[in-house]
């Protein structure tokens, strides 16, 4: 297991199915420690799970970073960064639609994750990899 904890940042190397459950479990704990209500911490855990599994399915290897985050206006939140050097997503708009899947899943991973978070950015280059950054603010 490759987990690196530095201050309030969690770095996960995703390369095995167990990394998916470890990252979501520890990410949820970080969210709870930061004072997120249980419902929000659950949503954060699900998003970590979705992003980590996407890495595993499409890129085989990648990293997920979960960290305490402070916005420019001082508000606090949690930031999830998922990054891989996999094949990339050829049609991003389509991938962000409910029900779109190339892996036989429910096709809710990206579009659903976006609904669960407050901010969601995705950058993907075919042949280069995919980077997803998502933020949920503490209310």
């Amino acid at each position: 297991m490759a987990t690196l904890k530095v201050s309030d940042q969690l770095h996960f190397q995703i390369q095995h199915v167990s990394d998916v459950s470890t990252s979501r479990r520890q990410g949820m704990q970080l969210a709870l420690d930061m004072g997120f209500p249980h419902a929000d911490a659950t949503k954060i855990a699900v998003v970590i799970s979705e992003l980590a599994r996407n890495i595993l399915i499409y890129a085989q290897v990648g990293t997920v970073i979960v960290m305490a985050h402070r916005g420019l206006d001082g508000k606090r939140g949690i930031k999830i960064i998922a990054d891989d050097n996999g094949p990339g997503i050829p049609n991003l708009d389509k991938a962000m639609t409910d029900g779109y899947t190339t892996s036989g899943g429910l096709g809710l991973g990206l579009s659903g994750s976006k609904r669960l978070m407050d901010e969601f950015y995705i950058h993907s280059e075919v042949g280069r990899g995919t980077n997803v950054t998502a933020i949920k603010w503490l209310r």
């Binding site: 419902a39 659950t42 949503k43 699900v46 659903g112 609904r115």
Partner: peptide
């Protein structure tokens, strides 16, 4: 309840 809330928001 919280799991259901997350599921329907996820669209599942």
């Amino acid at each position: 309840d919280i799991v259901i809330e997350t599921m329907v928001e996820l669209g599942m």
